Amino acid sequence: MQINRPPLQWLSVLMALMLSMMAQADDGLDSLEKRLKDMYPATRIERVQTSEIPALFEVTMGKNTAYTDVTGRYFIFGHLFDMKTQRDLTADRMEKQQRIDFGQLPLGDAIKTVRGKGERVLAVFSDPDCPYCKRLEAEIDKLSNVTIYTFPYPLEGLHPEAVDKSIAVWCAPDRARAWSDLLRSGKAPASRKCENPIQRNIQLAQRLGIQGTPTLVSADGRMLPGAAPGDRIEQWLAESRP
């Protein structure tokens, strides 16, 4: 059977048309983003992208996500669900947008603890006077084959002595032991002063949007707030995804 193939010039026209449509889509997104910023100057418009619904655009505003049409006048606040796959598409995208680049964390400003081979990695932002942080330490004891980087993150407004305790731990001869003794038994190390990263850690946590302690960060940048049980942490670590 003979198949009639389109002339090469038609293929060239089709390719040019597709490229033109892609460029127009990009221009449309750029134009809409500019329009939204002009219409709502007090709102931090961070990203505009197409959604799974034609003619509906997803707008990221800090930690908020909404949907709008090409005019930018009408907004829908809420989550978009794919009922066929039973997935919350909005939550998936928000979670990815809020991930932390683990590779950019200043691990030299953290207290390093290795359990077993230490093949998995985990960062923890923790306050020495936070009761939930003390509870988390007992749960972390249940983990194996993990390297833990603990960033002392004192919430001075809640715990006035936490900064001095964090500095004393950092300046102790064995930081990991001093931190463990402080959170597990309340045994504070002798007061010491030295070069320390405590203020840098506070600023780092604020930049990352970490507002409470404890907060765990996985190798793929996901965050888990609160004193989660050890089995929940294991499950969360196993959920690592790109």
Rank of each mutant, 00 (worst) to 15 (best):
I3N: 15
R5M: 14
P7S: 14
L8Y: 09
W10H: 07
L11G: 14
M15Y: 13
L17T: 12
L17Q: 11
L19Q: 13
S20Q: 05
A23I: 05
Q24R: 11
A25Y: 02
A25L: 12
G28V: 02
D38Q: 11
P41C: 10
A42S: 14
A42E: 15
T43Y: 13
S51W: 03
I53D: 10
P54A: 09
A55M: 12
L56S: 08
F57R: 15
V59A: 11
V59L: 12
G62A: 06
G62M: 11
N64M: 09
N64S: 10
N64E: 12
N64T: 08
T65W: 15
T68R: 15
T68G: 15
R73S: 12
R73I: 07
Y74M: 13
F77Y: 11
L80K: 08
D82H: 14
D82F: 14
D82V: 13
D82S: 14
M94W: 03
E95A: 08
K96Q: 15
Q98K: 05
Q98S: 02
R99H: 04
R99Y: 00
I100L: 07
D101C: 01
D101Y: 06
F102W: 15
G103N: 13
Q104N: 11
Q104L: 12
L107I: 03
L107W: 00
G108W: 06
A110S: 15
A110E: 06
A110C: 07
I111D: 02
G116Q: 11
G118M: 08
V121P: 07
V121W: 04
F125T: 01
S126K: 04
S126E: 08
S126F: 03
P128V: 08
D129C: 06
Y132F: 11
R135C: 01
E137D: 15
E137R: 13
K142N: 04
L143E: 01
I148R: 09
T150V: 15
F151T: 12
P154R: 02
L155M: 10
A168C: 04
A168S: 15
V169D: 07
R175M: 05
A176F: 01
L182N: 09
L182C: 09
L183C: 06
L183E: 10
G186A: 01
K187R: 09
K187Y: 00
A188Y: 09
A188C: 01
K193Y: 00
C194E: 01
E195N: 06
R200L: 07
L204F: 07
A205Y: 06
Q206M: 00
R207E: 10
G209C: 08
P214M: 04
P214C: 04
T215L: 00
S218T: 13
A219Y: 10
D220E: 02
R222F: 11
M223G: 07
L224I: 07
G226T: 12
E234Q: 13
